[in-house]
């Protein structure tokens, strides 16, 4: 299992505001990796730096063997076809139907004929748990949860090896969120995808995430499995994982197992 994303000494600052100061993390192939942190800790900025939407002020970001600050245009373009991204609010193109949204990259980048593209689109729509008729709807006609699912289908259109998810379960009902988690697990299992997700969802952290990093005070203050992270006594970790609510949940789960 090789490292496919590595952040080395990342510094991000806007004027006098320093967001990341000497931040390091590494993500292995095939794992579901979480990025956790308080709001304002720069999780989304870090994600944006991984997908070339933002250049770090200093430091190196390695993704799939490329150092992003010095990547030539053509390599950057081909790198962009190897990942799929689910934006927090879906970011579906509003002028296209769901099916057209999913089909877009297939149409642009491959020579697959219309019939087969339809077949692929229908499968992806079904995979994310939507019914075929949703394919004919425009994003403005969808509910929040459907937008998330449709956007995931678009992110999966090109069978990416790397999937970035920005708060995939936020805005979903608890059952929808758990289904989403199960879907991510299934996809990783079947397609061998590496998943990087920003999340606050404790349930996701417990059930789907292999390893994660905790962003606070401009650094990664803890990285690893849940057990590793729980050993940290950083105030944010204490507050987030060792509060009454989380502990109660823990105990409930433990009791459940005993019965």
């Amino acid at each position: 299992m090789g490292v496919i994303i590595e952040a080395k000494n990342i510094v991000t600052s806007f004027g006098d505001t320093v967001i990341h100061d000497d931040l390091n993390l590494s993500i292995n192939q095939g794992e579901i990796y979480g990025i956790l942190g308080e709001s304002g800790s720069g999780k989304t900025l870090l994600l944006k730096e991984m997908i070339m939407l933002l250049k770090p002020t200093a430091g190196e970001m390695w993704v799939l063997g490329h150092e992003l600050s010095k990547i030539p245009y053509n390599e950057a373009q081909s790198l962009r076809r190897q990942w799929g991204i689910l934006f927090q609010f879906g970011a579906l193109f509003t002028s296209l139907t769901v099916a057209e949204n999913i089909e877009l990259q297939l149409k642009e980048y491959t020579g697959i004929d219309k019939k087969m593209r339809d077949e692929i689109v229908k499968t992806k729509i079904s995979m994310v748990g939507l019914s075929a008729h949703v394919g004919g709807l425009y994003p403005s006609e969808l509910s929040g949860g459907m937008i998330k699912r449709a956007a995931l289908a678009r992110a999966l259109a090109m069978d990416p090896k790397l999937l970035f998810l920005d708060e995939p379960t936020s805005g979903l009902d608890p059952i929808g969120a758990r289904n989403f988690d199960a879907l991510i697990m299934e996809l990783r299992e079947l397609l061998g995808i590496t998943v990087v997700m920003i999340t606050h969802d404790l349930e996701s952290i417990h059930s789907v995430i292999d390893r994660f990093s905790v962003l606070a005070d401009k650094h990664v203050v803890a990285e690893g499995t849940l057990e590793n992270v729980l050993q940290s006594n950083h105030p944010f970790v204490e507050r987030f994982f060792k509060n009454e609510y989380t502990l109660a949940n823990y105990n409930k789960r433990a009791r459940h197992h005993h019965v």
């Binding site: 139907t97 099916a99 339809d118 077949e119 689109v121 229908k122 499968t123 729509i125 079904s126 995979m127 019914s131 075929a132 008729h133 394919g135 004919g136 425009y138 299934e186 299992e189 079947l190 397609l191 061998g192």
Partner: peptide
């Protein structure tokens, strides 16, 4: 076995219904 699993996944999600044209 990977191919088989992928086949089963896609088989499970193959849809006969057409996407409505807009």
């Amino acid at each position: 076995s990977e191919q088989q699993r992928m086949y089963e996944l896609l088989k499970k999600h193959s849809v006969k219904e057409a996407i409505p044209e807009r």
